[in-house]
Design a protein around this nucleic acid. Sequence first.
DNA 1: TTATAAACCTACTTTTTCAGTATGTTATGT
DNA 2: ACATAACATACTGAAAAAGTAGGTTTATAA
Lengths: 139, 139
Amino acid sequence: MISTRGRYALRVMIDIAENSNGNYIRLDEIAKRQDISEKYLESILVLLTRGSLLNGLRGKGGGYKLTKPADEYTVKSILELTEGSLAPVACLKEGAEKCQRESYCKTLPIWKGLNNVIDEYLSGIKLSDLINKTDDYCI
Amino acid sequence: MISTRGRYALRVMIDIAENSNGNYIRLDEIAKRQDISEKYLESILVLLTRGSLLNGLRGKGGGYKLTKPADEYTVKSILELTEGSLAPVACLKEGAEKCQRESYCKTLPIWKGLNNVIDEYLSGIKLSDLINKTDDYCI
DNA sequence: TTATAAACCTACTTTTTCAGTATGTTATGT
DNA sequence: ACATAACATACTGAAAAAGTAGGTTTATAA
């Protein structure tokens, strides 16, 4: 259901939130810490950057950092961007072609309900809930 | 997330619950009503029968019927049998090999929570909630 | 008892998605 | 100018999903 891409994306977002302090963090640093191949990680960071969840800077001193405070990211927003959609069935995806069975389908209400339950749960968790940034609060 | 197999399985179980009245229903009948190819449907009915959610009888007059009353099936039990597992990530599947990151993984609690939310929702719906068997109650 | 109807079984093909790799290009700071 | 690090494009391999094909067994009803 949640693919490697989405799971990695979440781990990476947590990693950046914890280890950056407004600084850019290099891809190879993250890759090493998270034990993900640089090349595969790159393809994930591209998504996060294009979706403007991250800010990428090229050249020396470059890297990635968050575009906004950690409490403004929901887990849902991160997963949705990388997974494409979290809908449990195709007919509930954004922009799906209209299903012929829609009017009388007895299973559709189940999928809608499931979709809601998942959405609510993942919208309720913020990136800031997942990090322990002790260094920020220690004097 | 939920594949065609699981979705079809649910539709088929509803179909049988609605149209059988203790009688066996033929595969080709179900296939026609549900607009699913006979051959593909067969592979699904095999799963449901092997998992003893259905009873299959061969030969003339044979077909499939429920093994128990409709209110003793949860949607979860039907989907779990056909999908294999409903766990949102591999490491939560039954009999998954132990994940090295388990002890310190910051995303694991999210997946466990999501798993619970999904389980609770799908366990709460019974097959009997999905059918309208008016003929049973009309004299 | 025999023909027929129906589920059962094994194996295959085709398509799609996931995961990962390779190579080259552009922007940035020193 | 030069090193650095993100960006871009394109490819490969493996696995799973979806669907097909053909033959085998078992029960029923004529």
